[in-house]
Design a protein around this nucleic acid. Structure first.
Lengths: 261, 261
DNA sequence: CGAACCATCTTGTCATGACAGGGTGACATC
DNA sequence: GATGTCACCCTGTCATGACAAGATGGTTCG
């Protein structure tokens, strides 16, 4: 229907010597084409067989990569026709940059104080390795911070970052530097995408003690993975926030009134 | 570590003569075990090889079925260990097309039951008038619902809608009809944008009693305003959800790099 | 007794090959 | 020109086989 794209990729290849799985590499190559809008809404991708030839991998691998992107909503498949770039999703209509709590607070003129509880280099637990796509025995920078507003402890964050990407990070003073600003300014690695989940839990003994709250106090627990260009994960964090002092706000619009299901 | 289940399935088999794909049949068989709670949180599933034997299909097919359920959040996999029933969270995922609560839950295969506690027309309180852009003395439709999953009360919602836009709404049976579907089907008013905020609070006496929880239990409190085309607000609601059974998940990509935290 | 090792379980990754079934367009036929 | 057929593209489904890598528990060795 709509005009087809050039089918030409920007000189990306699958590194067969890399420890990263082929399907992962391919997925990120394709994702890059889409987010850079070299492939646009409605464009047809090369067929699975063509992708096999282009990247010298089996159809199993190609389908695994495509599956993931279809699942994320970036692609759609049509039997007998082909695979297409999907309509853009709500992510782009996310309002503003004030995603988190700290932003809205600083915008209101309050001062945030930070105490660094731990900052060092460690071996990465498996869970973290998977989330950050690290190979075995790769080290991570571990940063644990306690953050205060009006002298009150509000938030505990434990961050994990691949040590390989951030040399010398243990020398940085995070009582005054924001983490994401450091990524961008010191390492020239901007955060371009985050995946996040939020739940409400009761404070256990550990968390209650650190936030100076009674046991069972409502806490917002946040898991977050941050990615930079090309889909490389660069940070995973867990955060525990005082529920009564935190609020997440966001908007979500639907691009067009499709109204199915 | 934890006790294992019986590994016995309720006499379900894959119908090889059915036009339904094997992986689909298997997925639904497994899902049934989970939603019926014959397999519980933390239980280990039979290994992939065992499932192959049990259902006489290839590992490709087994993995395809498991993949789907992992993706839905019903299962988790651990390399070297096995596949397990996930902590049941009634996730609201913001990557798909679902905007309402019931959509995202029913997509996970759970059945929602609804009890309508109140449905009538009232004058609008000031707070609501402002949120819905109403004039003084304009009436609203007030709908208070208690919603159950697996016979457990999970969620209380109080909705406010301009009575002017929804004539005859008090006659609709909301034990079977979803609110947003009603907007679209009965009134031809689709929800195209929502603005939402989330906090973690402790259950007060009222909420605790209605959700059958102890006082102080962690609750997710959600405020939501829904808009239709042109930005007209059509509904405002407050919702209180069991924190331990709820999780919000979403992705956020940034076109411009300005990550603050 | 403690540490190192290894057999054996698990899921993760990848290739190859096959056929089914939907969609499209060229072509022959009416 | 309208219509129907059919080769040929596409994705969907499924089997088989192989090896890697993480986890576990027992055994062996110091």
């Amino acid at each position: 229907m709509s005009a087809n794209h050039s089918n030409r990729l920007s000189a990306s290849e699958i590194d067969k010597s890399s420890p990263l799985p082929y399907h992962y590499q391919l997925r990120e190559i394709l994702r890059a084409e889409i987010v850079a809008e070299r492939w646009r809404r409605g464009d047809q991708l090369p067929s699975e067989h063509q992708l096999c030839d282009m990247f010298q991998v089996s159809r199993t691998t190609v389908r695994e990569a495509l599956d993931a992107l279809v699942n994320e909503g970036l692609l759609t498949r049509e039997k007998g026709l082909g695979t297409f770039v999907a309509d853009p999703k709500f992510m782009e209509t996310w309002t503003g940059s004030a995603i988190g709590f700290s932003d809205s607070i600083t915008q209101q003129g309050y001062l945030i104080e930070t105490k660094v509880l731990e900052l060092d280099i460690k071996p990465a637990p498996l869970r973290i390795r998977q989330e950050l796509n690290l190979q075995a025995h790769e080290d991570i920078v571990y940063l644990k911070r306690l953050r205060y507003i009006l002298k009150q402890p509000i938030l505990i964050v434990t961050s994990y970052m691949p040590a390989r990407l951030f040399p010398g990070m243990t020398e940085i003073d995070f009582t005054v530097n924001s983490l994401y600003q450091t990524f961008r300014r010191e390492y020239n690695i901007p955060v371009t995408r985050v995946k996040r989940s939020i739940e409400a839990i009761a404070a256990d003994e550990d968390i209650a003690a650190q936030l100076d709250l009674p046991l069972g106090f409502p806490i917002m627990f946040i898991e977050n993975t941050a990615y930079t260009d090309g889909g490389t994960p660069i940070e995973y964090y867990n955060a525990w926030r005082r529920g009564d002092k935190s609020r997440f706000q966001f908007e979500y619009s639907q691009p067009h009134p499709s109204g199915e299901r």
